[in-house]
Design a protein around this nucleic acid. Structure first.
Length: 919
RNA sequence: GGGCGGUUAGCUCAGCUGGUUAGAGCGCCUGCCUUACAAGCAGGAGGUCGCAGGUUCGAGUCCUGCACUGCCCACCA
């Protein structure tokens, strides 16, 4: 059947067809390998997107990189498991559904908790799959049969198990502490969810009258409304300015409450007046001081950060309104004595931007130090490597300065904390258990479950083992844990990566991976199998073309699906790969994608060219060697004869080596560029052009051999390209095999490996000379404005007999690619002649009646001479330097000598020609 | 307050462990519809690698300082 392909590549239909095919064929589903398995294993967990999410460029970059690495491993024979799933995303999802309800005029609290959660599940059922559907368009080769959701029953069960175990080990505690409170979300959030922003604020100075004296003590504050909850004034014990006031009391203005003056290191004499107001319920430092001095804790706000009854006359006011009133009243009553501009780091809620209120609240915390110690050690000992390496330091610093983690959230959607309290007010027993207790074990009273849910990151931090069946001791865990790699954005290094490491090292302690698999996978040297992954690759952020962070509010979000629509998935993937140099953010630029769309088209047309020839010369031909060996790791069935064959084979092996090498170290851009340059610049520009005469040779045998080479080389090139451009390669690959492919997909074919025996330096050198010759001829033609159709005779002076031989043997190529009709070899230099060019190996002269533009030629020669002389000067200087000769590696010296010889030949020729032309 | 990154062609970016004349895409200029590809082909112009020192036989690459710029972390009033 003849191959008929449209003239231009249309990615749309082709890409969706193969994306569906891969899913329907369950091509990437991985059954659990039974004991005795000896193949290497590669496991990767997809960072679960939020169920509420829409695919953005960050996802696409992340997934492109993962897919490249995954496909590469699969093609190299690894049992390759890529686990997909979504995150229930507590706050985001709850808000989404609340907004939906609001449009119906319903409030969450009116509905009640149970009904509300039902609504969320309904929502999830309807819309929760959207992001995964979008993922399918990217071609992500995940195992859909293992898809998870963080609120699946088995995962929820594991979450409860983890919570209870941590509680039993004393690593979870409940207590009243200062937490970051978001008044908009009405929940506590963790330190990480608070973004600090420097803003110009004020520092107000307030004086408090000392009781039994006419003195005042002045304190400074940035949040004057919190004074309503002051329960002390602190001064430093060493501060002699206040010694006489130790033990006295002040009258809290506005509230008319007597509060003590205490001595505490909280107050530093250098800052401000050296005296500080103490508000234990609204400031973490004050809270600690309050504990030290057994001060009352007076919370003056409610969940919305409105002032509560404790704020006396200010009750009911919003906190900022209260601030105004408090200031006004203080001023009026003569207590406000100063107001200065002051830069403050204002904490805002990461999600809604509301100013965080540090607030006393009863919450659940994870005692983090014991977990952090193991997590730090795993990285320090190299059991987990982090790439790029600078993130290692960042990670370690964070681990070393970590605080306990507030894990409770006052939300409805999420994993409910498995804790119950006794309703009996006398008892109030707290029970943490795997299953709901029937009654209070202490007093027999009824119990009710704690309303809070867990921080979403609590459950996602467990995924590396819970998705593999933990807490059961499963075969999956034995095989796939530790996972091999994690690829993620630096934004969630602490949120997620760090927590997975902490949980993994803790709960998987003592775990051992199947030793045969571990060995086969090259992890023998690793001692610690409790880690969630052996390596972390942190990738950059995708920004817009102006380097701005993409955000909905700025309206500069580039929708990947839109880009895909216009340029194709392959081109978009290629763009992201080609721009993803480790460590730097990507400024996404459509013009690049447009360029790579052209590349896809180039591949397409090269394929059309191949098929045209196959159909004509050797219908039905497929890749493979004489023995019918199809899935070679290199190129099968390649007949090495002509120079171009030796050359392309050598080049191909070098590309294969470089690409494998680049992928092994996550240098995606290098891999992508290397393939691009090879395919376009060498394979298409030169090889295809060079073999055209052979393909058209009247001797059918000659044509067949050329065709065989072409098909086999193309097949190998497609395999090399496949991880980056899965769709177009799949399409062409199947077309090559015409329904008789040895495996169901190119994704299951072998990735090309370099064979060093096929490196052919001689062929590369010879080819370079020929290319040089042809380019010089073209160059002269362009300068002499010779019409492209006109064939011209040239004269060649080869400096050495073997150069002459090389050119003679390949004269056909020179004639065709240079538009030459005859080559005359002469025995002496042609350098002086107008219309000539010289290199260190040959002179060429174009025979054409048209006059050379002498002025332009002189200009060109002048520039060339300058360059040559600069090179000679530099070289002389170095070669004249004994220390260079002594210290530089011999090859460097040798190369320099050779170069100097060539340069002096070139100089001589340039000079003589300039003289001749009268420059 | 601490830490990290960036500064290379008009634009967007490569340049890994220091070693010939610093590369690519887009844009620009010239000429071509040469039956795989005009989303193409051939040729070309364009850079004192942010600034100043230093190390070295040799620096875009390593070190120091400075300038500009971006980011992360941080419970001090």
């Amino acid at each position: 059947m003849p191959h008929e392909l449209p003239k231009a590549y249309e990615p749309g239909a082709i890409e969706t067809r193969w994306a569906d095919y891969w899913i329907n064929e369950k091509l990437f589903s991985v059954p659990t390998p039974p004991p005795g398995e000896t193949r290497p294993v590669f496991t990767l967990l997809l960072p679960p997107p939020n169920v509420t999410g829409r695919l953005h460029m960050g996802h696409m970059l992340n997934q492109t990189q993962m897919d490249i690495i995954v496909r590469w491993h699969r093609m190299r024979g690894f049992i390759t498991l890529w686990l997909p799933g979504t995150d229930h995303a507590g706050i985001a999802t709850q808000m989404m559904v609340e907004r939906q309800l609001a449009s119906e005029g319903i409030k969450r609290r009116d509905l009640g908790r149970e009904k509300f959660i039902e609504r969320v599940w309904e929502w999830k059922k309807l819309y929760g799959g959207a992001i995964l559907d979008q993922m399918k368009r990217l071609g992500a080769s995940v195992d859909w049969s293992r898809e998870y959701f963080t609120m699946d029953e088995n995962l929820s069960h594991a979450v409860r198990e983890v919570f209870v175990r941590l509680y039993e080990e004393g690593l979870i505690y409940r207590g009243n502490y200062i937490v970051n409170w978001c008044p908009w979300h009405e929940t506590a959030i963790s330190d990480l969810e608070v973004k600090h922003e420097e803003v110009q604020g004020k520092l107000w100075e307030i004086r408090y009258p000392v009781i039994g004296s006419d003195e005042f003590i002045t304190v400074a504050t940035t949040r004057p409304e919190t004074m309503l909850g002051d329960t002390a004034i602190a001064v430093n014990a060493k501060d002699e300015r206040y010694t006489h006031l130790h033990g006295k009391k002040v009258l809290l203005p506005l509230m008319k409450r007597e509060i003590p003056i205490i001595t505490d290191e909280l107050a530093q004499r250098e800052f401000g007046t050296g005296a500080v107001k103490v508000t234990p319920a609204h400031d973490p430092n004050d809270f600690q001081a309050g504990l030290r001095h057994h001060l009352p804790q007076i919370d003056v706000m409610d969940d919305h950060a409105h002032m509560n009854a404790n704020a006396g006359p200010y009750a009911g006011l919003d906190r900022f309104e209260a601030r105004k009133r408090v200031l006004h009243d203080l001023r009026e009553q003569g207590f406000l004595v100063g107001e200065k501009d002051y830069t403050i780091a204002l904490g805002k809620c990461d999600r809604c931007g509301t100013i965080i209120e540090p607030r006393l609240s009863e919450q659940w915390f994870v005692k983090i130090q014991p977990l952090a110690d193991k997590a730090r050690e795993a990285v320090e000992m190299g059991e987990i490597t982090i790439v790029p390496e600078n993130y290692r330091t960042i990670y370690l610093n964070w681990m070393n300065n970590i605080h306990d983690w507030c894990v409770s959230r006052q939300l409805w959607w999420g994993h409910r904390i498995p804790a119950w309290t006794c309703a009996n007010k006398e008892c109030k027993e707290v029970i943490v258990a795997r299953e709901a207790p029937a009654k209070c074990p202490k007093c027999g009273g009824t119990v009710e479950q704690v309303p809070d849910v867990l921080d979403t990151w609590f459950s996602s931090g467990l995924l590396p083992f819970t998705t593999l069946g933990w807490p059961e001791k499963t075969r999956d865990l034995e095989v796939f844990y530790p996972t091999t790699l994690l690829i993620t954005a630096y934004e969630i290094l602490f949120f997620w990566v760090a927590r997975m490491i902490m949980f993994g090292c803790h709960f998987m302690q003592g775990h051992q991976q199947d030793s045969a698999i571990k060995k086969a996978s090259g992890c023998e040297d690793k001692k610690n199998d409790s880690v969630p992954f052996r390596q972390v690759y942190i990738h950059a952020l995708v920004r817009d073309a102006e380097r701005q962070k993409m955000s909905k509010t700025k309206g500069n979000v580039v929708d990947p699906l839109d880009v895909i629509e216009r340029f194709g998935t392959d081109a978009t993937r290629f763009t992201l790969a080609a721009m993803a140099a480790p460590g730097t953010d990507i400024a996404f630029n459509e013009s690049r994608t447009d360029g790579y769309r052209a590349f896809a088209n180039k591949i397409w047309n090269a394929a059309r060219f191949m098929f045209m020839n196959v159909d004509r010369v050797s219908p039905g031909m497929r890749p493979g060697d004489a023995e019918g060996e199809y899935l070679s790791k290199g190129i099968a069935g390649f007949n090495v004869g002509a120079l171009e064959d030796r050359w392309i084979l050598s080049r191909f092996n070098r590309v294969a080596a470089d690409v494998n090498d680049a992928l092994a170290t996550y240098r995606f851009h290098e891999a992508a560029n290397r393939i691009y340059d090879f395919f376009w610049g060498e394979f298409c520009d030169w090889y295809l052009e060079l073999i055209k005469p052979r393909l058209n040779d009247e001797n059918n045998r000659t044509a067949q051999i050329a065709c065989t080479n072409l098909v086999n080389l193309f097949d190998a090139a497609l395999r090399l390209l496949h991880p980056v451009m899965p769709f177009i390669t799949e399409e062409i690959w199947h077309a090559i095999y015409e329904g008789k492919a040895p495996v169901r997909s190119i994704a299951l074919a072998a990735f090309p490996q370099a064979d060093e025996n096929q490196f052919d330096l001689a062929a590369e050198t010879e080819m370079a000379i020929l290319q040089d010759l042809i380019v010089n001829v073209r160059n002269l033609r362009a300068e002499l404005k010779i019409e492209p159709k006109v064939k011209i005779p040239i004269e060649v002076f080869a400096h050495e007999p073997q150069i002459k031989k090389l050119i003679q043997e390949n004269r056909g190529a020179v004639e065709r690619l240079g538009g030459v009709e005859a080559i005359n070899f002469v025995a002496s230099s042609l350098a002086k002649l107008p219309g000539s060019r010289s290199t260190s190996r040959f002179d060429i002269h174009v025979i054409y009646e048209r006059k050379v533009d002498v002025a332009a030629e002189c200009e060109r020669l002048k520039k060339e001479l300058e360059r040559i002389e600069k090179g000679i000067d530099n070289g002389q200087k170095q070669l004249g330097n004994e220390r260079f000769l002594a210290k530089a590696p011999p090859t460097v010296v040798e190369n320099l000598r050779k170069q100097q010889e060539e340069l002096s030949v070139l100089r001589e020729k340039a000079v003589s020609k300039m003289k001749e032309l009268g420059c």
